[in-house]
Amino acid sequence: MSDPTPDRAAIFARLAELIAPLNKKEIAIAEDTNFANDLELDSLTVMDLVANIEDEWDIVIPLNLLPELETVGQVADAVARMTDK
């Protein structure tokens, strides 16, 4: 597990690393990069990515929350919230 209270920037940087192997078109990852429209990830790939994110920070991201997590920034916020106990 990472630092128990990692700051938002560190979370974002690590998220970008986890996304890198899926970033086929090698677009720049920004706060508002959209998983479906920009990265063109299908739903199965998104679910696999979620599993990696859960394991990275030892958190639970239920699949039913995914519709609210459309951009990389939104995921970073969610991870920050969940790790900030």
Binding site: A51, E54, V60, P62, L63, N64
Partner: peptide, 26 residues
């Protein structure tokens, strides 16, 4: 899962370890 109101957690196919790890976080 989509029809109900529970929180949905998915584990890696046929992985006993992954199932156990994810249950442990709940």
């Amino acid at each position: 899962c989509a029809m109900g109101n529970a929180d949905i957690i998915r584990f890696r196919h046929n992985s006993v370890e992954d199932l156990s790890k994810r249950l442990g976080r709940l």
